[in-house]
Design a protein around this nucleic acid. Sequence first.
DNA 1: TAGTGGTCTAGACCACGGC
DNA 2: CCGTGGTCTAGACCACTAG
Lengths: 228, 228
Amino acid sequence: MLGWEDVQSEALRRIQTREWTPGELIPTEQDFADELGCARATVNRALRALAQDGYLERRRKAGTRVAIAPQRMARLSVPLIRHEVEALGAVYGHRVLKQTPGAMPAALRLGLGLSNATPCYTIITLHLSGTRPFALEKRWVNLDAAPGFDAAPLDTISANEWLVQNAAFSHGTLDYSAAPASRFEGSHLGCPEGTALMTLERNTFGPEAAVTWVRISYAPGYHLTLDI
Amino acid sequence: MLGWEDVQSEALRRIQTREWTPGELIPTEQDFADELGCARATVNRALRALAQDGYLERRRKAGTRVAIAPQRMARLSVPLIRHEVEALGAVYGHRVLKQTPGAMPAALRLGLGLSNATPCYTIITLHLSGTRPFALEKRWVNLDAAPGFDAAPLDTISANEWLVQNAAFSHGTLDYSAAPASRFEGSHLGCPEGTALMTLERNTFGPEAAVTWVRISYAPGYHLTLDI
DNA sequence: TAGTGGTCTAGACCACGGC
DNA sequence: CCGTGGTCTAGACCACTAG
């Protein structure tokens, strides 16, 4: 019995040995299925997976071609700071520096599409790797989208983890950039003002509205690593 | 007629509205199919896709559960600088500042697993967005893995694009960090020495050996944006 | 060992899009 | 138009594993 993974392997072999060359039209699903002696659905699943991985380009009527410039995609798991710290072999800790209700800048409210009646919460947290500062986080939370957040035990669980576990979210954006440390960041991260810091801004949206906006400044030496 | 994407949407809705809460066992494929009035295979395809995206955890006999810590993966297409520039609505250009054969630092050779007999090539390129500097790139190329590179017309095609089209590659790593501009970087990127720059180091490996090592320093204002 | 997901099949119809 | 991929279906058997 030929499984779809066998079909995939065979197709991949032909691609990699250039038996099927880039840009070339490969057999139709039915022809390939007949040749291998399996059902068309099995071939479909195999070729669909290869197309998703960028090896093939498929179009109705036009057929399936070997991709000319396979675009490789890197996958980045959305970073949970505690996991980043623990992955480095250190003990994670955090200190809440400040938490106050109801103070979201107007510009931010506009960008997130929130009315000024939306109850908000502001938190500044210092994340620690052992006893050393790891990252400084400033966060606004929409209390409508994350009810109960203002009563969360933020000394025992980080704001991010509480939200991951307790608030529904559907999509968001990550935005990495390099920025000079402010005086405030420098003092907490243990570096001079102006030091180049990796900075992450993250918007997170629930099914209906923005849940939280975060800006994280990582201590010097931070690296974002991905495999392709 | 209910398609698998409809089933997926419905399941996702129940997850995001917490109708199905994290850790909870959801209906079996057969039950869900009966409820929605479609075939089990359709439900299977939908739930399998959601599991692949990290929303669900599936195990034979044990059933399907909503993922407790929904590990969202962001996908990042391997950045081709020309595409980054054009996506911003500008005209891409580049200037080769320096190209010399045979000078790869020993530390780098070791890290890539190359012998010191490996023929190499060094290139420094300034990438332009219109007339403004966009990024400065320093690159070493393993000529064994990319034969003909030393004869490539690098004035008309960038080193990266030539390699993408002419050298097979199988895997690699991306490493983003924030770093202060060197005097050299500052002079070419039009910013003071010490300015915080987003920096990318990329290793690329072919089927047998390292193909190229690159360090790209982006001009101030660069943002790496991902969707989740 | 029984329940659940994983997969294959043969047939059918549909949707897109070259021609 | 009509070929090709995209998908649905009903049924079947298999693989894994919790209880």
